[in-house]
């Protein structure tokens, strides 16, 4: 994806998090991750990303 496309993703996610509201943003993000994992198709890639996203929090 181009950086402009990544930016569009960034903006859409920020807006959706705000729309979901503070109580629901975690479940929104978890759903999003599951949907993307399903589309990505490769379990190792997804599990790597899960552990990497957990670093430097």
């Amino acid at each position: 994806m181009t950086s402009a496309e990544m930016e569009a993703v960034y903006d859409a996610m920020a807006r959706q998090i705000d729309k979901a509201g503070p109580g629901k943003s975690e479940v929104f993000l978890a759903k999003l991750a599951l949907l993307l994992a399903q589309k990505a198709g490769d379990v190792h890639q997804v599990l790597d990303a899960v552990s990497e996203a957990g670093e430097s929090l």
Binding site: M13, A14, R15, Q16, D18, P22, S25, L57
Partner: peptide, 14 residues
């Protein structure tokens, strides 16, 4: 807002 802050912090951490 919470959404923009969360995305910013996620981007910085990544």
């Amino acid at each position: 807002t919470h959404g923009w802050r969360l995305m910013r912090d996620a981007a910085l951490s990544l």
